[in-house]
Amino acid sequence: MSDLIVGISDIKVSNNPADVIITYALGSCIAIIVYDPLVKVGGLLHYMLPESALDQNKAGVNPEMFADTGIPILFKTCYKLGAEKKRMIVKAAGGASILDDTNFFRIGQKNIMAMRKIFWKNNVLIDKEDTGLNYNRTVRLEISTGKVFVRSSGGEMKEL
């Protein structure tokens, strides 16, 4: 079994049943996890910020940094391995915020809104999500089963 580690602003996609895709330490960032159970293709995107309009040059070099440029790449990379949109299960985790988060430092909330907007526009339903609140999360996706596990900082691994 090999672990594929997804860094910040990064994507990993696999159809190898021996693989487990992992991302550590999601704070306000969000992990989008997709899986097609028929062909057993899965992928994980760890994006940092909601909109590529912030820095177009950066988005050109590292589109995985932003929700609006990263999410399409995640889906397209899975399609190349035979996944189909209608079968894909979509889950999300992360988007934490600091306490009494009012009008500022709202990156966690903005990241959640960005993903919802993109999925809504593209008629994609989010099957499960563990977002918001104020702790870090680690996420694992098993390619053989499509099972997703989330661990909060200091807590136990739970299936999402």
């Binding site: 704070g27 934490a96 600091i98 306490l99 009494d100 009012t102 104020n134 900082s153 200091g154």
Partner: peptide, 8 residues
Amino acid sequence: VDGLSYRA
């Protein structure tokens, strides 16, 4: 373990 549990 403290996560983001700090005041804004």
